[in-house]
């Protein structure tokens, strides 16, 4: 359920939402590269601060924190494994140093995972589709991507309805050994598949009526267009990135 909730896009209209998705994608990409280049805590902190500011500007702080929280278990694991390795192998002179380095690595993982969160939190699937189109991905793939997002929640609801209908006729899904349970999937999966086929047919019919594939030169109601502010944000980001890269290669 929560994963499906994540697929739902919450429409809003902020400075960050209005940025060209390609610029946001690039910013995320640059952050990712910096995370690969740096293990230093101060740099990682600058990055997380930048993300926090963007999340605040986009009014998605709460959901951004959620994605951060989601990466914590993995971070704890990385911390534990590194700490054990560093301490047992004696890589660092003091215990303090070993723990600090383990923390830095865990911290880095969090940043690694969160670098694209702003992009996904503020970009509509539709815009992602437009981005794909602007990168000359053939339209049928973009269409497949969009309709997957469109129909996943509907099919999830259908799955719940089918389970209810079968439980109402005495199918006890959570009883019995693994083999019996596997057998009980048949009354769930067959109707799900049958419904999906029926739906596919209806969709194909509607696509036919809506002239799908009529011309190779498909046009689009919306088109991504880099505006003045997009270029400004883009150049500032690139400048900051160059600075970071330069500092890595030639520390002052």
């Amino acid at each position: 359920m929560s994963i499906l909730e994540g697929l739902r896009f919450y429409a809003s209209d902020t400075v960050i939402h209005r940025l060209d998705p390609r610029v946001k994608f690039l910013i995320s990409m640059l952050m990712l590269i910096i995370v690969v280049m740096y293990v230093e805590v101060w740099m990682l902190t600058i990055l997380i601060a930048l993300q926090a500011i963007m999340a605040y500007a986009a009014k998605v702080v709460r959901r951004w924190l959620k994605t951060i929280r989601g990466s914590l278990p993995l971070a704890v694991l990385v911390f534990g494994l590194n700490a054990i390795f560093f301490i047992s192998s004696g890589t660092y002179a003091t215990l303090q140093e070993a723990l600090y380095q383990s923390t830095a690595l865990a911290y880095r993982l969090v940043l690694f995972l969160s670098s694209f969160s702003i992009f996904f939190l503020t970009t509509t699937p539709e815009e992602i589709g437009l981005t794909l189109t602007s990168w000359r991905v053939p339209y049928p793939y973009t269409f497949a991507f969009i309709s997957a997002i469109r129909f996943t929640p509907i099919i999830a609801q259908e799955l719940r309805d089918i389970m209810d209908a079968q439980r109402a006729r005495g199918v006890e899904l959570d009883k019995g050994g693994p083999l019996q349970r596997a057998k009980k999937l048949v009354p769930i999966l067959v109707p799900l598949l049958a419904n999906a086929l029926r739906r596919a047919y209806e969709l194909a019919e509607a696509m036919e009526v809506k002239c799908f594939g009529a011309t190779k030169k498909r046009t689009s109601l919306r088109e991504l267009k880099m505006r003045y502010k997009d270029y400004v944000v883009l150049s500032v980001s690139l400048a900051l990135f160059s600075l970071a890269a330069y500092y890595r290669l030639f520390p002052f």
């Binding site: 309805d161 209810d164 109402a168 009354p187 049958a194």
Partner: peptide, 12 residues
């Protein structure tokens, strides 16, 4: 006994 709206959800 409950009969749900979409009968197709049952048949397999």
């Amino acid at each position: 006994g409950i009969v749900f709206q979409n009968a197709d959800d049952m048949f397999f």
